[in-house]
């Protein structure tokens, strides 16, 4: 059994639950191979200043287009709602999609989102017809406010971007999943290894978005395959229903007929 059953992400039928970034790979060809090996059908991209005569962005864009994936542009580097809104508008025209991974950074050290401007920008962009994928912290009230302004998808972090620490606060994440049962929830940022992704899906999260964990691995292509398997394992585990935890041991081998058994 695997989890390659189609699911709906913003009304698009998707087979993989992994969303993958396009940055930090050792080379464009390794990026291409890693994305293909991951099985992901959603790739995040960004925008930057283009100076006259610089065509590097165009070569990158042609490579991404050749992969045939859905494109999820981000607003990385934006520090307030105004910057994020303008960046989203420019990204929509460049990439021809109304999807936007909305990042509004509130703290440079942790890259923690600014919750106030995040909600403000999300609301404005939804009114302009964007499908907003907000990068949020693992704060239930923030996630709820994003849903209240119209986000169908919310992306709480596992831990700070690029930290690779995995899910720092499982209690918060479980709570967000339980309290927002009909929202598409994607764990974004902080995933470091395949078991982290499996854990997120076991909890019932709909997907995982990652970049550094694959791009910075010694062998990004192999790590992409590992994440593909982890996503399958986690989703199957969730669908199968995890057994309840117990405080004490409970023998799994039946005790009836145990050799040398005697009653004291």
């Amino acid at each position: 059994m695997n989890n390659n059953q189609a699911w709906l992400l913003a009304d698009k039928e998707i087979n993989s639950r992994l969303l993958i970034g396009s940055a930090l790979y050792p080379s464009p060809d390794i990026m291409r191979q890693a994305i293909q090996s991951s099985g992901s059908q959603v790739v995040t991209v960004s925008i930057r200043r283009q100076n006259p005569g610089d065509q590097s962005g165009q070569a990158f864009w042609h490579l991404i287009q050749s992969l045939g994936c859905h494109i999820l542009p981000n607003t990385a580097g934006c520090r307030n709602a105004k910057e994020a809104i303008t960046t989203a508008q420019m990204a929509r025209e460049i990439f021809g999609t109304n999807w936007i991974k909305l990042e509004v950074i509130g703290d440079d050290y942790t890259l923690q989102p600014d919750p106030f401007d995040l909600v403000k920008a999300a609301q404005a962009l939804i009114e302009e017809g964007f499908e907003v994928f907000p990068y949020a912290s693992d704060d239930l009230v923030l996630c709820q406010k994003l849903v209240d302004v119209g986000c169908r998808i919310v992306m709480p972090w596992a831990s700070p971007i690029g930290s690779g620490k995995g899910i720092m606060n499982p209690y918060n994440m479980e709570l967000i999943r339980q309290r927002l049962p009909s929202t598409t929830l994607i764990v974004d940022a902080g995933i470091g290894k395949p078991s982290h992704a499996a854990q997120a899906l076991e909890m019932g999260f709909d997907g995982v978005l990652l970049n550094s964990a694959v791009a910075l691995a010694d062998d990004p292509v192999k790590m992409a395959q590992a994440f593909k398997h982890a996503m399958n394992a986690g989703r199957c585990g969730y669908e199968a229903g995890v057994m309840p935890q117990r405080e004490f041991a409970s023998a799994s081998t039946p005790t009836l007929g145990t050799p040398f058994w005697h009653q004291d």
């Binding site: 970034g21 396009s22 940055a23 930090l24 790979y25 990026m31 995040t44 991209v45 960004s46 925008i47 930057r48 200043r49 283009q50 100076n51 610089d54 962005g57 165009q58 990158f60 864009w61 991404i64 542009p73 981000n74 990385a76 420019m90 460049i94 990439f95 971007i161 990652l210 970049n211 550094s212």
Partner: peptide
């Protein structure tokens, strides 16, 4: 005036 083009992103 800001002029922007595609780039890699996470």
């Amino acid at each position: 005036i800001e002029i922007v083009a595609p780039m890699q992103g996470g």
